[in-house]
């Protein structure tokens, strides 16, 4: 198990759980970050942070200090 902030660009993770204050957590879940959702690391902003994640065909940018509270299991697919 790892966190979303540690996945490299192009890798996919399956969301396990989110450990953020309730309000933020709910907001993220309604945006698609629910357990068992597939998240792809799409690209990083020019400054290296925030990172753009692909989920359900949407692109959502999160800062590293938010992404590190989203636990994922990395998919070992090529």
């Amino acid at each position: 198990m790892t966190t979303l902030s540690e996945l490299a660009i192009g890798r996919t993770g399956i969301v396990e759980n989110i450990d953020l204050p309730n309000e933020i957590q709910h907001h993220l879940m309604h945006m698609g970050f629910v357990p068992e959702a597939r998240v792809v690391v799409v690209r990083r902003a020019p400054a290296g942070d925030p990172t753009v994640f692909g989920i359900d065909g949407f692109e959502i940018a999160l800062r590293r200090d938010t992404a590190r509270y989203i636990r994922v299991r990395e998919l070992n697919e090529k």
Binding site: L20, H27, M31, I60, L62, R63, D65
Partner: peptide, 9 residues
């Protein structure tokens, strides 16, 4: 304290 940045592109 810094608030999260959540932005849909």
């Amino acid at each position: 304290s810094s608030a999260p940045f959540i932005l849909e592109l």
